[in-house]
Nucleic acid binder design. Structure first.
Lengths: 143, 143
DNA sequence: TTATAACCTATTATAACAGTATGTTTATCT
DNA sequence: AGATAAACATACTGTTATAATAGGTTATAA
């Protein structure tokens, strides 16, 4: 599995925040209820989004989270990459991994490199705003 | 990680077999030595290739394995898919998984579907013969 | 000063991955 | 016929990542 729940949930959190902006700060508890994800688990995901300055949080009563960037400025590929710690399809292309000694004569390396280009080319062509506008079969979601 | 060692090694085995065809049957022991992969682990991978009729094996002394199909007829995407049990980038698109109840109003589903198309479009455009012909930086591999 | 909500640290259950270990069957060679 | 060599089969195991939980601390508003 290329993308785990961390990447998937991060996108859902960002879309949820974008859809509920304007009315002050958004509580994790509310996101958790709407998205049917454990609040505690969301915390660990939002923590990363805060660290990356995509979201900012205010403590205490009346506090919560807000996007610190417009949805059309949040790149989906970038979010997935830092949530997942990279999107390399194979271990030998993970950044920080030791260079493979077989690389000079490897018959598969170029194939993997190509796949490793194709994925970000796709993911990076989306912003959170694009996801919000995604057409759905039965778009009857009550906001 | 989208692709585990099983998929990676399977391709290396197939390329190795293609490069050493003609001289009778190829012993797993030899492949294991050339590829520096444990023979026992290779067994479990080749087993799948035999099951899929891409490779066939002959027991006993002088036995070994051979490709049962020409390298240009072996699709890389297909090999990866059955070795990995699918290449879906997210759990909700795995075949055999329960349909997601959120699908009708999911803002990310179409995005994932798109990624799930992009990956096979790339992988399926390669055959084992293509991999063999892949240009390398320092192609000094001794066959 | 109490309620609330973000923030922080540690722990845990499960499953997949990557590989081992041991043995059985089938074929060839002497 | 017997030794050897290879595929084939089944079961087990250590390690790691995932997907959370649990329990607490700090900051803010009413």
């Amino acid at each position: 599995m290329l993308i785990s729940t961390r990447g998937r949930y991060a996108l859902r959190i960002l879309i949820d925040m974008a859809e509920h902006h304007g009315s002050g700060y958004i509580k994790l508890k509310d996101i958790a209820e709407r998205q049917e994800i454990s609040e505690k688990y969301l915390e660990s995901i939002v923590k990363e989004l805060v660290k990356r300055h995509i979201v900012y949080g205010v403590r205490g009563k009346g506090g919560g989270y807000r996007l610190s960037v417009e949805p059309d400025q949040i790149n989906v590929g970038e979010v997935l990459r830092f949530m997942e710690g990279g999107l390399a399809p194979v271990a030998c292309l993970e950044e920080g991994s030791a260079p493979c000694p077989k690389a000079p004569y490897c018959r598969t390396l170029e194939f993997w490199r190509g796949l490793d280009e194709v994925i970000p080319r796709y993911t990076d062509s989306f912003t959170v705003a694009d996801l919000m506008a995604t057409p759905n079969a039965g778009n009857d979601y009550i906001i």
